[in-house]
Each structure stands twice: as C-alpha cells, then as structure tokens.
Design a protein around this nucleic acid. Structure first.
Lengths: 234, 234
DNA sequence: CGATCGGGTGACAAGTCTGTGACGACCGGG
DNA sequence: CCCGGTCGTCACAGACTTGTCACCCGATCG
C-alpha cells in the first residue's frame, strides 16, 4: 500500500518481559506504527486512559493486575470500551474465556507467534474499526476510490464511467469488504428482489466491471463455488 | 487458571451401578463440579428436566429405559436439547450410532476409562458451549484460523486456498470441535443429504485438506473405525 | 505369525464452474 | 424512426473440482 496514513496509529504494547516488548515494538514500528509500552497492569491502564492509543497488544500474564483484569477495567469505561485489544498468551486453552463476552478481547495470539502475523492482526483490527465501511460515503482501496453520493469511481486520477448496475454492484461488494458474497446475495442486494434473474448475469456484470476498472480489478476476487469478494488488501 | 468460576457447573451422573456412580461423582467433585446422580433412565430424565444440569454423564446400559432412549428424549425437548451428554459404554463399536444424529450424544468414553480423562472431557464440553463455537464467525486453533464470512483459512500468516468442499468439511469438523464425527454424519453435513456418495470420499477430502493445511493438519484426528475429529488441543 | 480390516495415497475421468464473446431486447434521445 | 448504450441471456472453452477406484501399508486380531 503506497498511501501512508497522515497520523501513525498509536499502539500500546504491554508485557512484563522487556524482551517481548522489544520484539513486538520493533516489528510494529517497522510496520509504520507509533508504539508506547507498559510493563505491568497498573501502568497499562494509566497509559491507555491518558494517551488514548488506537489499539493494544496485551500479555495475559502480568504481575499484580493481570491481562484479564486490565481488559475488563478498560471495557467498563466508555472512553476505552471500544479500544481494540489483542491478547498474547502462552497456552491456547487459556484463551477460550478471553475472547468471549466474559472479558472482551477482540483477538488473540499464542506465543510463540510470527511477528508478521501480529502486525497483520493489528492492521486488520484497526482497519475494521476505523473504516466502518458499512455506511461511509467514500470507500478507498489503494488507488481505487468509490464516491457514493457523487456516484463516481476513480482509479488513480482517471475517472471510470460505470453504468448504474455496475456501480451498485461495486458498492455492494465494497461495503461488505472482505466477506464473500454469493451470487444470490448479490442479486438480492443489487437487483432488489427480482430473483427471476439468472445468477450467471452477475458474472457478466463482474466481467464488465473488471474490464472498466482495469488494473484496479484486482480488488475483486472470485471465490470459486461461492461468489465474489472485495479484497481487504492486495 | 486462578479465578474460580462463581457457580460450580452442575453435572448429572447416570449409571445403574452405584460403585460406578460413586467413582465418577467423586472425581467430578474433586475437580470442582457439583454432582447430582440417578440410577435409572426414568429418574435421569426427571432430574435432567427439573434441575437443569450443565452437562450429563450417561451410561449406555440402563435397566428399562436405556441411555440411548434417554438421550433421544432429551433431544426432543427444547429445554434439554442442547444439554451436553457424554456416553459411557463397554464397547467402542456400539458408539457409531450413539455419536451420529440418530442419538445425538456429544462425546463418549469406553469403560474402563481413567477418571482424569472423564473430567477432561466434561471440562471440554462445557468450555465448548461457553465458547459457543457452534455459531461463531471465526474459529481459531493454535495458528490455524478459520474465518467463515471471509471464506478464508490461514495457518500462521500464510493463507491456505481451499476448495468450497474442503472449506465446508473443515468448518463442519471444527464447529463440533472435540467430538468425533462419523463419515456418514460428515456426508450429511457437508454434502447435504446426497447420501448416494461413497463414504470413502470423505477420506479423500480429508487427505486433500490435510495436504493443504500442512503442519496445521495435526488438528484433524483420525479415529479408527469411527470417523474424524477436530482436536480440542494439540 | 498370518489374515483381515481400515485408512492413506496417487491417478483419473466426468462433471462443474467461471471468463468470455456474441446476440437480441429494450429504452430514451435525437 | 434510428441509434447508441445498457442489460439479461446464452453457448463455449478452459481450468479446476470432485467422486471413485485400485493399491499399499500399518494396525488389529485370532
């Protein structure tokens, strides 16, 4: 992805082992994040409240106030209730409760994990929260830009002329970004109920859409035997 | 884990041999469960309905109303339909039917069994229900991750390309995590009804699945003579 | 120890799915 | 009325999937 975000997302990394913190922090920084750290639960809570990070990587085992407690406390306050949290733990079995309602972490990783995977998870979590693509006016994917109120699509600085069906198909796909949508679903959403239409018609329109999108067509995946998907990233 | 659950889960133990009941009850109590008991099918049904236990350990051989009948009856009523049931039996061969849809037990143990294993199974069953794996969007097992709406499977940070049949097979296995599923049952769930298909076909698909999953294939167990199982843990 | 059974494996032919080009129907504007 | 553009359908080819089979091997059992 070429366009750097204006402001680096700030990630709070919490672990009582300095080496672990260092490893995680290094990789997140390399991926373009701003990183702040904490070594125990108390200071984690303090920093989370004062510096309002965009996401948090939280070790489960901490001296005194452990990760679960930190998580719960954060969830109680409105200001931090929605903070995306990724839990780190040594054993997968511990995590059953963590993910569920009881604690409310958003994701978890078991040690040892690949740094690349951690970075991926953090990115996904941020993307999901920040984008809130379901009801946004403008959807951006690389240099593809979909401006819904203007009914306008651009690839780079080139404007793409789409018919209204093509436009609607594209927006429906993009709004459920990442999720596969069956042809039947697309028919319902794009063609409103008129299910008398052949599902293969969807294919034809996808083809025309891809043709017009040119290089940006790569954002539309075919999932064989299932349907189509607008990619999360390239 | 340090934090004890607020309320002890209540387990109903059913066997016509008092010694067996005693043995099981003792071990479950030692593991922190509350235990209630029954010596025959009739009273088992009564207690299951009146005292709404969290799980049930049920001997297959009972005078008059046997374990299979108890199981079936419980499944018929909405209030007890989801009650996790572990069947006890003398011979493994009997269990093919018990596990399948016909009866609907969740797990089984063949006598003689180690008390420790029984306790493990009970815990797992409860965990599973708490986790609500039956209808979650994302199932995670170690570094294997199954994202159902995205129709996407990753091992660590590597994405695995599965065909739709393979994907469905994997999700069906993973959703009933820990429980053995017979080939017949898998055929029903993955191939919807079309039981005209050879059960050996399941083997082939499991093979292809394992091939693609690489190291994460360890999550899929073969249970000789019965079927396949998605491991609870490695 | 040999026989039997169940499951893993590689190959394969038939079937299924999708991309593609073409076509006729339709519509609104000249 | 003609025309350009859009739309739904179709037939076809190529790629991929999938169910089956024969074979082998290790486990199991007598």
């Amino acid at each position: 992805m070429s366009s750097e975000p204006r402001v680096k997302p700030k990630i709070l990394v919490v672990d009582d082992e300095p080496d672990a913190v260092e490893l995680v922090a290094f990789n997140l920084k390399a991926a373009g994040f701003e990183v702040i750290t904490a070594g125990d639960g108390e200071s984690a809570l303090r920093r989370a409240r004062q510096e309002s990070p965009d996401a948090m990587v939280l070790d489960l085992m901490l001296p005194e106030v452990d990760g679960i407690e930190v998580c719960k406390q954060l969830r109680r306050h409105p200001r931090t209730a929605a903070l995306p949290i990724i839990m780190l733990t040594a054993r997968a079995e511990e995590m059953d409760r963590v993910i569920g309602l009881e604690v409310g972490a958003d994701d978890y990783l078991t040690k040892p994990f690949s740094p690349r995977e951690l970075v991926l998870r953090v990115k996904n979590l941020l993307k999901r929260r920040a984008r809130n693509e379901e009801d946004t006016d403008v959807i951006q994917a690389g240099d593809l830009r979909i401006d819904i109120p203007r009914h306008q699509v651009t690839v780079g600085d080139r404007e793409v002329q789409l018919t209204s069906t093509e436009f609607k198909l594209l927006t429906v796909l993009a709004r459920r970004r990442g999720r596969v949508q069956s042809r039947e679903q697309l028919l319902r959403d794009v063609w409103n109920y008129e299910s008398l239409i052949d599902t293969r018609t969807v294919d034809t329109h996808v083809r025309r859409l891809r043709e017009k999108l040119g290089p940006a067509a790569r954002w539309i995946d075919t999932v064989r035997g299932v349907g189509y998907r607008f990619r999360e990233s390239l």
